[in-house]
C-alpha cells in the first residue's frame, strides 16, 4: 500500500479515537463527580443527623430512619412524622408533597432535605426496602423493620 492514501484515513481514525476518548472521559468524570462523591455517604442516620446538627447547619443531606408509628399526620400535599435511628434518636420531619405509595409506619425511609429549626424539612421521601420476599400472609405479620438497613458504613 502506498503512503499517499493513508494520511486522511489515519487522521480521521485518530480524530474518531479522540472523540471516543473525550466522550468516555466526560461520562466518567460526570458520573464520578455526581455519583460516587456523594454516594459514598449516601445518607446520614437519624442518630448522626442529631449529633452533627451544628455542623450540618442548613446544608442539604439525606436522612435515614424508621417511621415511628403513631406520629404520621397527613394532609393533602403535606405530611409530618418522626423517624427514629437504630441508636434511638428521633427527628421530627415535615415533608412537602405527597408520600410515595408504599410509605407507612415502621418502615425505613431515606429523605432529602435540610434542618429547619428543630425539624427536618424534606422534599423527597424514598422508601428503603430489604431483600426479603415474604408472601402476604395475615397470620404472620412479623416486625421486619431493622434488618438490612444501614448497609455498609
Amino acid at each position: 500500500m502506498t503512503a499517499t492514501r493513508t494520511p486522511p484515513q489515519a487522521a480521521r481514525g485518530r480524530r474518531r479515537l479522540w472523540v471516543a476518548g473525550a466522550v468516555i472521559a466526560a461520562a466518567l468524570g460526570f458520573l464520578l463527580l455526581q455519583g460516587l462523591g456523594e454516594a459514598t455517604v449516601y445518607f446520614k442516620t437519624a442518630d448522626e443527623a442529631v449529633a452533627q446538627k451544628e455542623d450540618l447547619g442548613d446544608r442539604r443531606f439525606r436522612l435515614e430512619g424508621a417511621v415511628v408509628p403513631g406520629t404520621v399526620e397527613a394532609v393533602p400535599g403535606r405530611v409530618a412524622f418522626e423517624v427514629r435511628g437504630t441508636g434511638g434518636s428521633t427527628v421530627g420531619v415535615v415533608h412537602q408533597g405527597d408520600p410515595p405509595e408504599l410509605f407507612q409506619p415502621d418502615i425505613p425511609v431515606v429523605l432529602e432535605g435540610r434542618w429547619d429549626g428543630e425539624r427536618y424539612a424534606s422534599d423527597r421521601i424514598m422508601v428503603k426496602h430489604t431483600s426479603e420476599y415474604r408472601a402476604e400472609n395475615p397470620d404472620r405479620v412479623d416486625d421486619y423493620v431493622g434488618k438490612d438497613r444501614a448497609g455498609g458504613q
Binding site: 454516594a39 459514598t40 449516601y42 445518607f43 431515606v110 428503603k128 438490612d148 455498609g152
Partner: peptide
C-alpha cells in the same frame, strides 16, 4: 451495597 450505604437493598 456492602461497601457503602445505599438506597438499594443488599
Amino acid at each position: 451495597v456492602d461497601w457503602w450505604r445505599t438506597l438499594h437493598q443488599g
